[in-house]
Amino acid sequence: MAYALQQLINGVTLGMIYGLIAVGYTMVYGIIGMINFAHGDVFMVGSFLSLIALLGLAALGITSVPLALALTLIFAAGIAALYGWTIERVAYRPLRGSFRLAPLISAIGMSITLQNFVQVSQGARVKPIEAIIPGGIQIMDQGGFAVRLSWMQIAIVVITMSILGIFTWLVTKTPLGRTMRACEQDLKMASLLGIDTDRTISLTFVIGAALAAVAGFMFLLYYGVIDFYIGFIAGVKAFTAAVLGGIGSLPGAVLGGLLIGLIEVFWSAYFSVEYKDVAAFAILIVVLIFMPTGILGRAEVEKV
């Protein structure tokens, strides 16, 4: 019981990170119908940017932890947003309206580029840091097994929740969100109605990249170690989460992220760590067989 509770806590934390990345996949997919393969690598870039910012701030002598974290978050999200914008401009926009596979290959190319760019510029070694927010609280003690909730986990859940809150407000209540949803419904129609679709698509990439950078920041804080390769695995998992939740659906992305996080953690805890990825993917396959458009995806009956 206590053990399961601990896994639940860990799973939710991990799921939050996946969910944040998945939102970026789902947004881009919803609006231009492509898998932005490089998104996972933007997440990785975001966590490197966070690491650099933290080290830089420490070198500058800023010791207040909340201030350092806030500045890091802003820095990482800002620069990652610039990455998102550039990627769209360079690799996807010229291919807009082109054949389906060209943007996908371009995206895979971008992913390889980013990965190797970071490997070359920052080195291939893993980058460990010390815990920034150590400690936590003990919620329960059952038969010698202590259930712990670290400050870090609380911070992750709180930050994710508030970012998602802001994001939901942005999409549902603001004119920007309205244009985004309009483009998602029908890009061509939206542009005929005078919406600047290029700008909207750019903004989608910018927002998605910023969210991925937040996830990267939290990944760094939570695990305390990153390398240039984390983007691929986390990206595939997050994309799996987006598909599981029903691609195109924002709540679905978060839900899918939580599910993948929980599956992974529980599987590692009760069965085997080695096969945790297999478990996540196998469940994806099973879910898709019974719900071909994911959990919250719109059922698409093709009109003929």
Partner: peptide
């Protein structure tokens, strides 16, 4: 790195 860029 060059391979990735070349794909794009």
């Amino acid at each position: 790195l060059i391979f990735g860029l070349a794909l794009v």
